[in-house]
Amino acid sequence: MALLEVKNLGISFGGLRAVDDFNISVEKGQLYGLIGPNGAGKTTVFNLLTGVYKPTRGAFSLDGVNLTGKTPLQISKAGIARTFQNIRLFNKMTVLDNVKVGLHNQKKYSLLSGILHSPSYFKEEKAMDEKAMELLKVFDLDKEAAFLACNLPYGKQRKLEIARALATNPKLLLLDEPAAGMNPNETAELMETIRFVRDEFDIAILLIEHDMRLVTGICEEVTVLNFGTELAHGKTEETLKDPKVITAYLGE
């Protein structure tokens, strides 16, 4: 059984079918690409898989658990995390606290303990500090733990967003255009980071990306969307040679 199973997923906005009859299977440990022209429905798919939008048809499950119609918090706790095309960090919070935000879906103290700052609160906060620092070390961000997130350079902000997503302890990580705004050297480093994350954390990664160097460099399979429907899917190299894909996506 695949880790992520999506069957006939779709959503309409005012009669417009933004995504229609979307199907995908992502295996455990797989690096999978979701590509297509701007406006093809890729981010809408991510919004459906994270509970931002409720599908009007179809279903999806993670590790055999049906998550259709669940809230973003329920889906996060079930094991799906994401990043965004436009980085969404808490800019006026420290690097450390940004990662701790991701850890709070696993906190074990009660609201009352948090308000009263009970011993269980301090014990749990200390454990979260330690876990957050471990994640920051993975991305070589531990020396900037006390910096405000807005003071990090762009490439490190991308890494921090991935670290925060990993703090939720996901089984599946959704990356929305992680190479956006990066130069070739940064993209090459990002590819290594994504491979490392997949292997080190034993998770599957589904990514949206327009940079074909990154897609061909790390994605084992891809699905191509166009106007909200699947245009092609299969092994990356073969799929990108499909004449329909070349015409619709690459514009050649």
Score class of each variant (00 low, 15 high):
3 L>G: 08
5 E>G: 14
7 K>C: 13
8 N>F: 05
12 S>E: 13
14 G>L: 10
14 G>V: 10
15 G>Y: 00
17 R>C: 01
18 A>W: 09
18 A>N: 12
20 D>M: 01
21 D>C: 06
22 F>A: 08
23 N>A: 13
23 N>G: 15
24 I>M: 15
24 I>K: 04
25 S>C: 12
27 E>H: 07
32 Y>P: 07
33 G>Q: 08
33 G>K: 04
36 G>A: 14
37 P>I: 02
39 G>Q: 01
42 K>L: 02
44 T>F: 08
44 T>W: 07
45 V>M: 05
46 F>V: 00
48 L>D: 07
49 L>Q: 09
50 T>R: 05
51 G>M: 04
54 K>D: 10
55 P>H: 09
57 R>L: 04
58 G>R: 02
65 V>H: 11
68 T>P: 11
69 G>M: 04
70 K>I: 03
71 T>S: 15
72 P>N: 08
74 Q>W: 04
75 I>A: 04
79 G>K: 07
80 I>R: 00
80 I>A: 01
81 A>R: 02
83 T>M: 03
84 F>Q: 02
84 F>N: 05
86 N>H: 14
86 N>S: 12
87 I>C: 03
88 R>M: 12
89 L>T: 05
91 N>P: 00
92 K>N: 15
94 T>H: 06
95 V>M: 06
97 D>R: 03
99 V>D: 13
102 G>S: 12
104 H>K: 10
106 Q>V: 04
109 Y>K: 05
112 L>K: 14
112 L>E: 14
112 L>Y: 10
112 L>V: 15
113 S>P: 03
115 I>K: 00
116 L>E: 08
117 H>N: 07
117 H>Q: 11
119 P>M: 00
121 Y>A: 10
123 K>S: 14
125 E>N: 05
126 K>P: 10
130 E>K: 12
131 K>D: 05
133 M>F: 15
135 L>M: 10
137 K>R: 12
139 F>K: 13
143 K>E: 14
145 A>W: 08
146 A>E: 14
146 A>P: 02
147 F>N: 10
147 F>T: 00
148 L>S: 01
151 N>C: 06
151 N>M: 09
154 Y>M: 00
156 K>H: 02
158 R>L: 01
158 R>V: 01
159 K>Y: 01
161 E>I: 03
161 E>P: 04
161 E>M: 03
163 A>K: 12
163 A>W: 10
164 R>G: 08
165 A>C: 09
166 L>V: 03
166 L>R: 08
167 A>T: 09
169 N>H: 07
169 N>F: 01
171 K>D: 07
173 L>K: 07
174 L>M: 07
176 D>M: 08
176 D>I: 07
177 E>G: 04
179 A>G: 00
179 A>H: 00
180 A>V: 01
184 P>I: 05
186 E>D: 02
186 E>I: 00
189 E>C: 02
189 E>R: 11
193 T>E: 13
195 R>I: 10
210 H>K: 01
211 D>P: 03
211 D>I: 02
220 E>S: 06
221 E>L: 00
223 T>L: 12
224 V>H: 06
225 L>C: 11
225 L>R: 11
226 N>V: 14
232 A>Q: 09
233 H>F: 13
235 K>E: 14
236 T>K: 04
236 T>E: 11
239 T>A: 13
246 I>D: 09
246 I>G: 12
246 I>L: 11
247 T>P: 01
247 T>E: 15
247 T>V: 10
248 A>S: 12
248 A>N: 05
249 Y>V: 06
